[in-house]
Design a protein around this nucleic acid. Structure first.
Length: 511
DNA sequence: GTTATGTCCAAAT
DNA sequence: TGGACATAAC
């Protein structure tokens, strides 16, 4: 599953972490991962159809690990298999069935330990099993969604649209779907590996961010072989990256044909069929059908390009009746066969995924530059406060700014502290460092300074401080502001910093 | 140097 | 089942 060798490749975008590093934020969790792990403790019973709840207990233990560390979980389950994968899933399911029959025979034959081994390899996580977990989540008032198709795409959708801050999973595909942050391989104690999208260029060679886009990254992964398309013989991640690195061609139809020449592999043949399958795989990563908890409708993971609609790509999922959509998302009916499962459930207030604000204790003012992230204070404030209150506060803020800088500055971060403060500081007979509040020789970084040191420092400015103060004093008491830990990576270049900057949106701040 | 293949082990209590 | 690792093959 996933892209072979991707996580090792992303080593420089990864770091060991603990779930408490995400304190105060919200996680989308791949439910099947945990069910699968939990099923190990009671594989025989599940296969023999005996009653057990060990697997559910394990899942709830993981849920508690998140909650105990101040992370609110939203659990996501797989729905219907995509047409492109239905075939392989069927085969897999059938082979498991055969193995289960074998295991039962072994067991009946008295070869208990041998049978157990086989059973552990053939437990299948059925929608019914998932439903047991769902019922427990309902009891514990934990949000969950059954995805219309693959959980991966749904997890990514929740992450990209501000429903959650990060994803907990084991599947490398999450990075291809465009997730910002994924917490991999979390153990029961909460330890795991954090992988960040903004750091992917760190793994693709020097100056990668100047020529590497996320599209190219995804294409390289598809070429190297993914769930939706096998690779051409002899093509792995390295070759794919090497091929895509120098090109500016964004049309797969003409681009892919050049592969044998570029890579000097005369035996390699790129058929039209392969190119068409490549485009389908790419579209499946970009536009897979997911469920939007706000509109309670199906939609593509990313908006379709102009002139394209869902009918053009049935392989990425098809749209169906809206009443069905909600019942499938809630786990009231089977995602594929549409029969009822358990008691119909309707969440409180009809809200399927809550968007609560994390607590004020998570506000890391010092680690985050509002100007760099281009957060519009006013827009942010209106999200939470009364517009009248915001207007009044804005006037006060502007007044304070004029008092400090001599004029109103915008948040385009084109202003050097030094330039702004020198005249004013000189007029008062002080150094601009003093004006900035720095101590002695401690000179604050300005936004133009290249981040080179291994020290994890964010450029800060007086303007940031004012905005931060504004947030803390006016917004935080009314709401709860999310922690935004933006730390410069050891080798983060200006370019990748710029990429990261664009990726931080208002949604990252207010959930 | 990269891809393909083969083996072993660990997922949980 | 997938991952990590070693080894063979290109």
């Amino acid at each position: 599953m996933g892209v072979a060798g991707l996580l090792p490749l992303l080593k420089n975008a990864s770091q060991p972490g603990h779930i408490s590093d995400f304190k105060g934020s919200t996680a989308a969790v791949d439910g099947y991962c945990w069910l699968h792990r939990g099923a190990f403790s009671c594989a025989e019973k599940l296969v023999l159809g005996e009653k057990t709840d060990m697997h559910i207990r394990f899942c709830m233990k993981m849920i508690k690990t998140l909650q105990a560390n101040g992370v609110r979980p939203v659990v996501v389950f797989d729905g219907k298999s995509l047409p492109s994968k239905a075939e392989t899933n069927k085969k897999r399911s059938e082979s498991k069935k055969e193995n289960r029959a074998k295991a039962r025979m072994l067991f009946a034959d008295g070869q208990a330990s041998e049978a157990k081994k086989v059973m552990r390899r053939c437990v299948e996580i059925t929608p019914e099993l998932a439903h047991q977990f769902i019922e427990e989540l309902r009891r514990k008032d934990v949000d969950y969604i059954v995805a219309p198709y693959e959980a991966d795409a749904q997890l990514a959708f929740l992450n990209l649209n501000g429903f959650v801050d990060f994803v907990v999973s084991e599947d490398s595909d999450l990075m291809l779907f465009g997730c910002e942050r994924v917490f991999y391989k979390m153990d029961v104690n909460g330890y795991g590996t954090i992988v960040e999208k903004s750091k992917i260029p760190n793994c693709l060679g020097p100056r990668a961010s100047t020529y590497f886009t996320h599209d190219k990254f995804r294409w390289a992964c598809i070429l190297s072989g993914c769930d939706y398309l096998e690779s051409l013989p002899g093509i792995g991640l390295k070759k794919a990256l090497k091929f895509l690195k120098p090109t500016s061609n964004t049309d797969p139809q003409t681009l892919l044909k050049k592969m044998p020449v570029y890579l000097n592999m005369p035996t390699l043949t790129v058929t039209q069929e392969y190119i068409d399958s490549f485009v389908k795989a790419d579209n499946t990563f970009l536009y897979q059908v997911v469920f939007c908890p706000d509109t309670k409708k199906l939609c593509p993971l990313n908006p379709y390009p102009a002139g394209v609609c869902g009918d053009d790509m049935p392989y990425a999922g098809t749209y169906y009746d809206s009443k069905l959509v909600i019942d499938i998302a809630l786990g009231n009916i089977h995602a594929t066969r549409h029969y009822p499962m358990g008691h119909p459930y309707v969440p409180k207030n009809g809200i399927i995924v809550r968007k609560t604000k994390p607590t004020i204790s998570c506000l890391k003012v010092s680690g985050f530059s509002f100007t760099k992230a281009k957060i519009e204070p006013k827009q942010a404030a209106i999200e939470i406060l009364d517009e009248e209150v915001v207007k009044k506060k804005e006037t006060e803020l502007v007044a304070e700014m004029i008092n400090l800088y001599g004029k109103q500055i915008d948040d385009s971060d084109k202003v050097k502290d030094e330039d702004m403060l020198k005249p004013k500081a000189a007029a008062q007979g002080r150094s601009f460092q003093q004006e900035l509040g720095g101590k002695g020789n401690e000179r604050p970084l300005n936004v133009f300074k290249k981040i080179e040191s291994t020290e994890q420092k964010e450029p800060t400015s007086k303007f940031d401080k004012i905005v931060s103060r504004f947030f803390v004093s006016n917004i935080a008491p009314h709401s709860q502001v999310v922690a935004v830990k933006r730390k410069a990576a050891p080798c983060e270049s200006q370019e990748s910093a710029a990429v990261a900057k664009r990726q931080i949106t208002l949604k990252d701040l207010f959930k």
